[in-house]
Write a protein that binds this DNA or RNA. Structure first.
Length: 320
DNA sequence: ATCATTTACCGCCATG
DNA sequence: TTCATGGCGGTAAATG
């Protein structure tokens, strides 16, 4: 249960990464039906810290807040800045008692200092991935993903990926209806999977002379119930199968089939939360065809069975 | 759970 | 020369 959230700030904290965390967990939207959090910003001794932009930030708490938090968020700090031992120790204590920990960008280095990355899959900004692996040899650094959230230690790549990770945690806690509504409120894309590549060749849609796959993708999400094959998609995009596969990876960072499955799972989550349709009906509507197929992909990607997912999220949170 | 069959994907390389 | 293309074949994964 994520109720108490504590952000650990040190000198030279990066404002944008900090802002991402504040936006998701530190802004009161309970009036609109969103879940509320007890939000603490803490530093060693509660001392004022300087941001990388030069201005000063006065925390609400000292490090004792870490001992009572359900979620501890670590924004980015420049690598090489000495981490106060008491902050590292507090972080380790929190992780040991099972609190959820998340880092954005270079915040992962602080998690490394606390030994939280040992033996764990993790990530950071691609530019720092090599350094992170060198500094913490026991960490399994994956430089190619937006975020890793395998267990209660979660790490994310550069800045914007922090938004994806925060929304992922909201989704895990409160379901996709809440996460999607929150994303809409923040005007960010509703869901980017953690496995999605950090490098995408065309993250920004190009202009008319260089068409993108965007129209195809938009059409796909409205026709998830239909059958789609690699060849049929290539034909619709007026490309050879080989070129289509290449272009698809360049633009989305994944493969057509994998992307399609991801979208179908999102639709399933939605239908489980918002309707009373049976698993068979949902399988049919989402394009999985059979309940067995649905269960297979759903449990693999969500980590819960459709039934338990529905039990958890059905009617629990109302969103305006 | 396991298996046989089919499909998707990607490295390689020739082509324009 | 460099670059995108697209056909081929091996391998991994999905499917039923």
């Amino acid at each position: 249960m994520l109720q108490r959230v504590a952000v650990l700030v040190l000198d030279n904290v990066a404002p944008f990464e900090l802002g991402v965390i504040c936006e998701v967990f530190g802004t009161d939207r309970t009036a609109d039906g969103f879940p509320g959090y007890e939000f603490h910003v803490c530093s060693p001794g509660g001392a004022t810290v300087r941001t990388t932009s030069g201005w000063l930030l006065t925390p609400t708490d000292d490090l004792t807040a870490l001992d009572h938090a359900d979620l501890i968020a670590v924004p980015a700090h420049p690598i090489g800045c000495p981490a106060p031992p008491e902050a590292v120790a507090a972080l380790r204590r929190a992780a040991e008692r099972g609190a959820q920990v998340l880092s954005v960008c270079s915040g992962a280095f602080l998690l490394g200092e606390a030994g939280l990355l040992d033996g764990r899959r993790c990530t950071t900004h691609w530019k720092h991935a090599g350094e992170l692996a060198r500094r913490f040899p026991a960490a399994k650094v994956d430089p190619d993903v937006l975020y890793v959230a395998d267990d209660h230690i979660a790490t994310s790549a550069g800045t914007a990926a922090g938004i994806d990770l925060c929304l992922h945690l909201v989704r895990r806690e409160h379901g996709s209806a809440v996460a999607t509504a929150l994303a809409r409120r923040m005007v960010v894309p509703p869901h980017r999977d953690g496995g999605q590549a950090q490098y995408v060749e065309a993250p920004v849609p190009r202009t008319a002379d260089a068409p993108t796959l965007e129209p195809l993708l938009s059409w796909l999400v409205t026709t998830l119930d239909q059958e789609h094959t690699a060849d049929s998609l290539a034909a619709r995009a007026h490309m050879s199968p080989r070129t289509f596969a290449r272009r698809f990876r360049a633009e989305t960072g994944t493969t057509p089939h994998d992307w399609l499955t991801g979208q179908r799972v999102l639709l399933v989550r939605h239908l489980l939360e918002q309707t009373d349709l049976g698993v068979d009906a949902i399988a049919s509507r989402s394009g999985f065809g059979t309940a067995a197929m649905l269960r297979h992909h759903f449990t693999r990607r969500v980590g819960a069975t459709p039934q338990s997912y529905r039990m958890t999220f059905r009617d629990r949170d109302r969103v305006a």
